[in-house]
């Protein structure tokens, strides 16, 4: 691959969560001479690359590690192993986020905005502290971003609770983009929105992506949304990427049985002349990530 294609470079990233030990717990383990408690392998050995200006869709069911991977790319969690680089520079160094090049839009716009901070201040906060703008310019800057995400600039003096869900998600997008990121991570950005509002926010995303030539990672459990917005797709199952490729080919001719089964599980509105769509549900449930099956994680449920 050409370096241009390696704008985002995720190399062999793993993340193991260990349950936090209390003093008593440590003492008990020391006395009983047990080792440290077993960890939960949320992400294991993920390697992927993304070209500048492209969008990667990250799909999978709950517990598959897609959000954890997103948070590692965003520099919120530090990986247990491996590195994430954006434009050649690491996102984290010594367990601390060192760059503003990656910004995040979170799922729940009711939780991701500080309820006690005016929305305009929330948008201006990062850019001022990182010297992107002078404090005296903040008002103008905020108004420009508000207009850009389709909000009335005069509303910047209000608090988050005065906005609807869709409007808050617009504010969250403005806050992330005001940092002028090289990579935007969207973690289920439309999952908590109503259908009609979801379309508005997806359109805003498409529009901004084109105008700003954004490179994005779009995490979602909704396959139709991912199919719509992404150039490439990574399908995750129990911490591993099981399929990675161009969106069209992954959705059109899925190579992995899990991808195929997942696509079959999605209810859709029957097309003209088609009978009511019958599902072929996947057998069984996702195994516990604390104790994943050996070998291929999907083998116990695999129809092939």
């Amino acid at each position: 691959m050409k370096p241009r294609d390696q704008y985002l470079k995720v190399e062999d990233v793993s993340k193991t969560f260990t349950s936090r030990q209390t003093m008593g717990g440590k003492l008990a383990r020391a006395i009983t001479r047990k080792g440290p408690p077993p960890g939960l392998q949320a992400v294991s050995g993920v390697t992927l690359e993304l070209a500048k200006g492209q969008t990667l869709g990250l799909v999978g069911e709950s517990g598959c590690g897609k959000s954890t991977l997103g948070r590692i790319m965003a520099g919120i969690h530090s990986p247990s192993a491996g590195t994430v680089r954006i434009d050649g520079l690491p996102v984290m160094e010594h367990g601390k986020k060192t760059t503003t090049a990656v910004q995040t839009v979170f799922q729940d716009p009711f939780a991701s905005l500080d309820p006690r901070m005016k929305v305009g201040d929330a948008v201006a906060e990062g850019p001022i502290l990182h010297g992107l703008i002078m404090p005296s310019m903040a008002q103008k800057y905020v108004e420009r971003w508000f207009a850009r995400v389709g909000l009335d600039p005069s509303l910047s003096h209000r608090y988050p609770h005065q906005f609807s869900g869709g409007q808050r998600q617009r504010i969250a997008i403005a806050r992330a983009l005001a940092m002028q990121p090289k990579l935007l991570i969207c973690d289920e950005p439309v999952a908590s929105l109503d259908v009609s509002i979801q379309a508005q926010v997806i359109n805003l995303f498409l529009e901004l992506r084109r105008e700003l030539e954004l490179t994005c990672v779009f995490i979602s459990h909704d396959l139709s949304v991912v199919r719509h917005v992404s150039d490439r797709v990574a399908v995750m199952y129990l911490g591993r990427i099981v399929e990675l490729g161009e969106t069209q080919s992954v959705f059109g001719r899925p190579a992995h049985p899990y991808t195929a089964a997942l696509l079959d599980s999605v209810p859709r509105i029957a097309a003209e002349g088609e009978a009511l769509v019958e599902f072929k549900p996947i057998e069984g449930e996702i195994p516990s990530p604390l104790n994943p099956p050996p070998g291929c994680h999907f083998a116990p449920r695999c129809p092939r």
């Binding site: 379309a199 359109n203 529009e207 139709s224 199919r227 719509h228 917005v229 069209q248 859709r268």
Partner: peptide, 17 residues
């Protein structure tokens, strides 16, 4: 719904809420 539009194209949206 995203499935109603070709991938990458603007979705048909209902204005307002």
């Amino acid at each position: 719904l995203p499935s109603a539009t070709a991938p990458g194209q603007m979705l048909t949206q209902i204005p307002g809420s």
